[in-house]
Design a protein around this nucleic acid. Structure first.
Lengths: 103, 103
DNA sequence: TATATTGATATCAAATTCCGATATCGATAT
DNA sequence: ATATCGATATCGGAATTTGATATCAATATA
């Protein structure tokens, strides 16, 4: 179960995942797609890269280029602003889970 | 803190909230907007109503019209299909929260 | 009888986002 | 030269989001 009729439910989750990982260590797109797949999310690069770009453009991530064996990788790291959103996301996600488990 | 630079992070949360409430009792738009506001989400009716419509169209909700003191209300209730998504959402949300709280 | 009010849903057009497919990039291997 | 490899970028069509505005049906009021 994971298809196009309800992917939009989880796009926010994916964005939060990105912020979280980028708060722990620099992340780049290709690797992150695998990480997401491991968590059961499927997302194409046509979706993923623009998300990275927007998060950067909005000031939640910063990027550094790294040349790895001749391949350019763009590593993203969270910013102070990004951390604020992440914190808010943490709170809201916890609240959601609590509510979902009320009797 | 809750503005248009990161609303998209939480639109999925809102949709899950809808499914959850519609699994407990019939819900309608106007009332639900208040409920969301209580939870710290701001969303206009131009966003909210189309979400209800799509959830219904995709078979996750069913609607019944009720005439309350002359005002028509559209009460939405979750379907079997909707419950499946809700269950999946519950699992994914819990997983997200767990991950966010890892050291 | 008209019209204002009230609680509610519907829809519009512009902007943004999503998506799969396809292109591109830079270095190394053949 | 060109094929391959790991990676990022972008295209155009579709779908979603948004604030603003319209509409609806009944009742209250003038």
């Amino acid at each position: 179960m994971e298809d196009q009729t309800f992917r939009d439910f989880f796009l926010g989750f994916i964005k939060i995942h990105i912020l979280y990982h980028a708060s722990r260590e620099p992340v780049y797109g290709q690797e992150f797609a695998d990480e997401l797949r491991r968590h059961g999310y499927t997302v194409s690069f046509g979706t993923l890269y623009p998300i990275f770009h927007r998060l950067q453009q909005k000031g939640f991530l910063i990027v550094t280029h790294k040349n790895i064996k001749g391949k350019i990788r763009k590593y993203y790291t969270i910013t102070r602003e990004g951390k604020k959103i992440l914190k808010e996301a943490k709170r809201k996600a916890a609240e959601l889970v609590d509510e979902l488990h009320e009797n």
